[in-house]
Design a protein around this nucleic acid. Structure first.
Lengths: 288, 288
DNA sequence: GGGCAGCGATACCGTGGAGGTATGGACACC
DNA sequence: GGTGTCCATACCTCCACGGTATCGCTGCCC
């Protein structure tokens, strides 16, 4: 019953590649190896786990139940291994004073909070230097998970905080950003349904994790300034947390969206982090 | 900068063994191998991570900063890999209808809640069979982390819920259990300080994670019934959540402890669990 | 201080297994 | 039935993992 598996990351990497491609040949190519050894490695993995992971005919490869589970969990496990290596690496650099704690935040969001946090932490005795890593939406989660970052500012309910420790910092409502002078910009409130129907002002489309875009009418965007620019040009509108609209230029105006869910900015870190610098940052954030 | 590490679990296992033993010879023995290949594997790992992990003289081995980080993170990563294998294994069994979701709870705690939960879930259409795994304090966390269990009932603030998704179920105060007829058993409330001073009734000592016991006057205990028995015998007292005292025999009595922290029973599951059965259990728990 | 014991590193060697090439066999499509 | 696609099998090669022997350093004890 207690079959000790003892999987190797190599096997997991192979399996994830095949499970993602659902094609041994392409997976082998992606892994930079020939197809036969890959086939063998997978069947060996199946023997070791004691379960069929892939149903394969010569025409089609599909995941079994067990395979789906292993894909999901295997990805997480691989990320954990990567994270371990990277964090050790960075700990060594930090010890020699070359680098330090990496904080990641969504570019353009919570910038005021971020500035206050950095100031407050820097004022503490023995504060480490903080590298700030601004990135696109959804990317922070990955950075935190795979060890390239130590702390993140995330926004519920948009970002997945599963598996991290978090502390809530601030909760705020959302507003819709409109071109200045838009007829509705004088309203005191608006509903999501109304926003969705705004003629000529579709919501922009953000890239998904794999970089592709969902279908729809809105313009494709990759970062925050693009959005602001598109709104100013009268080609789009956007629903954002109030603080993101705090420092608006004259060409934009904001209207509160009454039925949009509240957004909570949280500070998040890997569950078992023992870093003094991370703890200090969290303390500083809570004192704000 | 973006040095892709590509660690293997074998290397991590070796490192964790050495880091725990702080002795290459003993670690090699524990791993069932000779010492020289272990030394080599570690230095190879150090080259790969790009950092010294262990400071070694011929007399003493100590962890560097980076080593401490890798020990902590590496353990977690190894557990994640194990968990991936085990969960895939169990998913295969579940698909053939042989086994199913494993729920773990502290033996003797929340038994009424547990019974209600199992009943409520079993009444649902399409409910999977639930294996209940009762275990000693602190053990559930490990089971959940390494994939032997799918859901756990945990008790804040005693159990570490870091890295899991949780939902709060009930919060309750704590009581001290005394032998029936004890002079203080007629009091309506008592303080922790008073409990600590009770003449002849020390608090029992639970085993730590490694199985050893802290020093102190109290009797060593390993499970809940031992505690109840010792109290009935007039050899100890214990501070427990109210619900644990709900079904007392005639030989025990409970007094509310006014300044003990509230205990929250939570249902916890691995952060990225996609299992329908787990989701169903959580739903059922929240409806209680 | 010299001898000794403990411990990690180095040198060298053998074997298992990971990966490569060639080919077989099943299936879909024309 | 021919052909192309795709995974599995057969067979070979070579690297690297693990084993044995030994060195070199360090602290300890007489």
């Amino acid at each position: 019953m207690d079959t000790v598996t003892g999987l190797e990351t190599r096997e997991l990497r192979y399996f994830v590649a095949v499970a993602e491609e659902l094609h041994f040949g392409r997976a082998a190519e992606r892994l930079g190896m020939a197809q036969p050894p890959l086939s063998r490695a997978i069947s060996q993995l199946e023997r070791r786990v004691g379960a069929t992971l892939l149903d394969r005919t010569s025409r089609r490869v599909t995941l079994t139940e067990a395979g789906q589970v292993l894909l999901e969990e295997g990805r997480a496990a691989l990320e954990a291994v990567e994270a371990a290596g990277r964090r050790a690496q960075r700990a060594a650099l930090a010890a020699t004073g070359q680098a330090s704690v990496v904080l990641t935040a969504k570019a353009g969001a919570s910038s005021e909070l971020l500035a206050k946090l950095l100031d407050a932490y820097a004022a503490e005795p023995g504060a480490a230097t903080v590298d700030v890593h601004l990135c696109g939406p959804g990317e922070q989660e990955r950075l935190l998970r795979d060890g390239r970052a130590d702390v993140a500012l995330l926004h519920r309910p948009f970002d997945a905080t599963a598996g991290f420790d978090t502390e809530d910092l601030v909760t705020e409502g959302q507003v819709v950003l409109l071109p200045a002078g838009h007829p509705l910009s004088l309203r005191s409130e608006i509903t999501l349904a109304e926003v969705a129907e705004l003629p000529g002002l579709p919501l922009p489309r953000w890239p998904r994790r794999d970089g592709s875009f969902a279908d729809g009418p809105g313009p494709q965007v990759r970062d925050h300034t693009q959005v602001l620019q598109l709104i100013a040009l009268g080609r789009a509108c956007a629903v954002l947390p109030e603080s993101a609209a705090a420092t608006l230029g004259r060409d934009l105006s904001a209207v509160r969206v009454s039925d949009a869910p509240d957004v909570t900015t949280v500070i998040a870190w890997p569950a078992h982090s023992r870093s003094r610098a991370v703890a200090g940052l969290v303390q500083a954030a809570l004192r704000l």
